[in-house]
Computed example of a mutant assay.
Amino acid sequence: MPVILGIESSCDETSAAICADGVMLSNIIANQTIHEAYGGVVPELASRVHQQNIIPAVQQTIFNAKINKNDIDAVAFTRGPGLLGSLLVGVSFAKAFALAKNLPLIDINHMQAHVLAHFIDEPKPAFPFLCLTVSGGHTQIVLVKNYFDMEIIGHTQDDAAGEAMDKTSKILGLPYPGGPLIDKYARQGNSKAFSFPEPQIPGYNFSFSGLKTSILYFIQKNVAQNPNFIQDNLADICASVEHRIVTILLRKLTQAAQAYGITEVALAGGVSANTGLRQGLQQLGEKMGWRTFIPKMEYCTDNAAMIAIAGYYKFLQGDFTDQHVAPLARMPF
């Protein structure tokens, strides 16, 4: 029964988890509030806070799992992609812990781990399945043939969907992090109140740069005519923006599912916590006759549980790395 310690530090969450024989025993996430004052993640500050949080997070997850350090069989960690300074903290800790305890190291691709988060709990998708992976930095449609046999069949050609939501929140003057606030206000608004363009990108690829620009010009034009436009229409703006982003994502996903003849469809990544997207996929799945899979909220945003479960499957394959491993800000899928 392999016991895996998972470490995640790719951006601004310091997380540690314990997985025993594929069962998650604990998952600790330490968030960083320091970035709120700057309206976004400051890489240098993120690295410093990771240094403060990493040991307490690991101690707490071991305590919550009701095991001791000697029970751990391997250490899995996020190697990339992510902020290099943040990754360096997690990778360095993992290497030191493994060296001290004479344990094997397992390096994990952060984006693959988001997909494998679906294997933490039941029900689990059957291979092959499609996974729409949406975050602040990535938007991908992944054809998942096996645990580590994955192919990106669609991706964003510029900005990610989560980045478009974050940018919208800044334009509207909302505090950081803006994604959850867009979600909150969208629940109170009319998604058909305002219309935003849908990029015409061939195949299964995405583009959100033009949408961001159209939102900016829309707000500037209307605020020039009415200084209180945002305050008077905040919920409707959020609902309309969210609706456009969700329709773009789900239309491409539908095209891919039909082309590949796949009826097992999953959602992953930080933006999979968005209520509109979760509901949209569920409704689309019922219409199309799909089996749909959406992780629990705690497994949507960056977390070590997905790193630990990915490490578990790599452990079974004997796929280890060594002490010479280094973090990668950009890591091939």
Results as ranks from 00 to 15, higher is better:
S191E: 15
S207F: 06
A235P: 03
Q225V: 05
N222P: 02
N233S: 00
S195L: 15
G203Q: 03
F194R: 07
I215P: 09
S207T: 07
S209H: 14
D236W: 06
E242W: 03
D232P: 06
E242I: 06
D236K: 10
Q231L: 00
N226S: 11
A193C: 10
F208G: 12
A235L: 02
S195Q: 15
G210F: 08
Q231R: 00
S240V: 08
N222Q: 09
Q225I: 05
I248R: 02
S207I: 10
F194H: 14
L211V: 09
F194M: 07
F218S: 13
F206K: 08
D232N: 07
I230M: 03
K192D: 13
F206D: 11
D236T: 03
C238E: 01
A235E: 09
Q200F: 13
P197A: 06
Q225T: 12
A239I: 12
N205K: 04
S209F: 11
A239H: 07
K221S: 15
I201M: 12
N226I: 02
Q231W: 00
P202W: 04
Q225R: 06
P199Q: 02
Q220H: 13
V246C: 06
I219V: 15
E242V: 01
D236H: 14
K212E: 09
D232A: 07
V223P: 09
A224S: 14
V246Q: 02
S207K: 03
I215W: 02
F229N: 01
S191T: 11
F208T: 14
K212F: 04
A224T: 09
I201Q: 07
A224M: 10
Y217R: 11
N226A: 04
K212A: 08
F196Q: 07
F196S: 11
F229Y: 00
H243G: 01
A193K: 15
Q220K: 15
R244E: 08
Q200G: 10
P197K: 03
R244P: 05
I219A: 13
N205H: 14
N205T: 04
R244D: 05
V223L: 12
F196P: 08
A224D: 12
G210E: 05
P202Y: 08
F206C: 08
S209R: 14
Y204E: 02
S214Q: 09
N228D: 07
F208A: 13
Q231K: 00
K192G: 00
K221N: 15
S195C: 13
I237K: 04
K192Q: 13
I237C: 04
Q200C: 14
N222M: 05
L211Q: 00
P202L: 06
N205Y: 08
F218C: 11
S195P: 05
T213E: 11
C238S: 15
